[in-house]
Amino acid sequence: MSAEAAATPVIEARGLVKRFGVRRAVDGLDLTVPAGTVYGFLGPNGSGKSTTIRMLLGLISPTSGTARILGHDIRRDRVRALRGVGAQVEAPSFYGYMTGRRNLEFLGALTGPTPRALVDQAIARVRLTGRDGDKVKTYSQGMRARLGLAQALLCRPELLVLDEPTNGLDPQGMREVRELVRTLAVEDGMSIFISSHLLSEVQAVCDRVAVISHGAMVAEGPVAELLGNTDGLAVLRLACQAPAGVDPVAIASAVPEVREAQSQDEYLIVTAPAERAAAVNAALVGAGVAVSELLIVRRSLEEFFFEVTGEESSL
């Protein structure tokens, strides 16, 4: 990838608005996806994720605003914009009466000349070898999801847009997709824009995330930054019983690099770098404090998501 190409965002949306009647599905969304990143796109059901993805791919026209894909305006220059894009939008749909391979050959032909080797490679990558000659109507939901990934990979895209790619996959399949996404990003240098409701998946594979709610962006940035882990501090929760005259708070506070220690309910809460957990434990045990439990409490993307969207259970 040239320096210029690397500097150009693969997705750049400015003031994207989509109205369906009086309802604003997307409300002035600004989005910049740098090249070479795995970008997570999160939001509760009905928050405008799919509408945004459809606008980015030229499936629906924005009411106002612009979207540029790989430097090309999606409305004015849709064909050139999509030339370097592989996409899977929502549940993958195929022609059930055709084999998996035939479906890929057809979709490949829509993109341009697709050598047999490229189809073979895509099939192998999603582990469908051996079943590619079967009709799609005989495929399980998971196999269809894999075929959806295969068709997105057909044109060796610069940008891969995946809308809920792990839907219908078993845990093994999910892990394979996670690994595939990382491989595509690291080894093939692909930029990946991934929308998923599985927050742990997103946290595991994405470099940056954007969270939208009611059609508007509520948070955006590198995952570590959003989760407040940039200073390297973690919260340690200890269940301990101190002998008379021994103050666990004072002992923990005296351990080097401990930022703060306090007693909360029956627990001792210590803010310190996670790697200092053993030192805190040793200091307490050394002072005769019986430590029955030590937990490094990390803020998860899920907690962060609920904080910024105000949602509790509607993912």
Partner: peptide, 11 residues
């Protein structure tokens, strides 16, 4: 739903 699969192709 195959229409959207077709129309995200550069055609």
């Amino acid at each position: 739903g195959t229409l959207r699969t077709m129309l995200v192709r550069p055609r």
